[in-house]
């Protein structure tokens, strides 16, 4: 089995070899490592992307907008790096859309890392495939196929505000149950058990 460390190093070198800078190569190494660790087909998609890279033109997005449309497929690496670099301003846009996106699986780890930076979950939809990116700790998805996805027609990204996924009642019910581990105090215990607070005017 190839170790994650080998994946990181080899991806970094391959990315430099294809023409990206060392700094970007470092990012891609980390990202493919993340994809493989989460069980998504990073190596397979990257390998195929680099095979077509020399003969096919990809669009390099600079400043990412709410809606990004291109006749040429967006490059997942430049889009990913710029998304990461611009995440502090992008999070103010509720939803971001890309039309015509090359090798979208490769875009996922950049979003996953962005989720960690802003401390918000990110919901990603690649055509009909859904991904919930949880602070770069895990990726929840309805996509389990290990195949290469060469292109996506529509990519939608939305930032999920930090709020509870349950109702107040759900919480109250659970809290009440937890109270059964508490001990009812006598008046004397109320005075003494905390170990402080009896003579604080010193």
């Amino acid at each position: 089995m190839i170790s994650l460390s080998e994946i990181d190093t080899t991806v970094k070198r391959a990315t430099k070899a294809i023409g990206f800078s060392w700094g970007i190569a470092e990012e891609v190494g980390k990202c493919i490592r993340t994809l493989e660790m989460f069980g998504l087909p990073g190596i397979k998609n990257l390998n195929q992307y680099y095979k077509v890279f020399a003969n096919k033109k990809f669009q390099n997005v600079s400043l990412i907008a709410k809606s990004n449309i291109s006749k040429v497929s967006y490059c997942p690496i430049i889009s990913g790096v710029n998304f990461l670099d611009q995440i502090h301003t992008l999070q103010n846009l509720e939803e971001i859309e890309f039309e015509n996106f090359g090798f979208p699986i490769l875009f996922i780890p950049f979003l996953s890392r962005s989720s960690e930076i802003i401390g918000k979950r990110i919901f990603l939809k690649i055509d009909d495939k859904e991904f919930l990116l949880n602070f770069n700790q895990s990726i929840f998805s309805n996509y389990f196929n290990k195949n290469v996805i060469e292109n996506a027609n529509i990519i939608k990204i939305s930032f999920i505000e930090n709020k509870d996924s349950f109702s107040d009642q759900d919480w109250q019910d659970l809290y009440k149950l937890s109270e059964q581990t508490f001990v009812e105090e006598t008046d004397e215990l109320k005075q003494k058990a905390a170990g402080a607070g009896l003579t604080d005017n010193d």
């Binding site: 990206f20 800078s21 060392w22 700094g23 970007i24 470092e26 990012e27 600079s62 400043l63 790096v81 710029n82 670099d85 611009q86 502090h88 301003t89």
Partner: peptide
């Protein structure tokens, strides 16, 4: 911002890091 500077200067990304 460094983010905007990087758009045209990714060749020095490793040094900025």
């Amino acid at each position: 911002s460094v983010g905007k500077f990087l758009i045209e200067n990714n060749d020095l990304r490793h040094a900025i890091r």
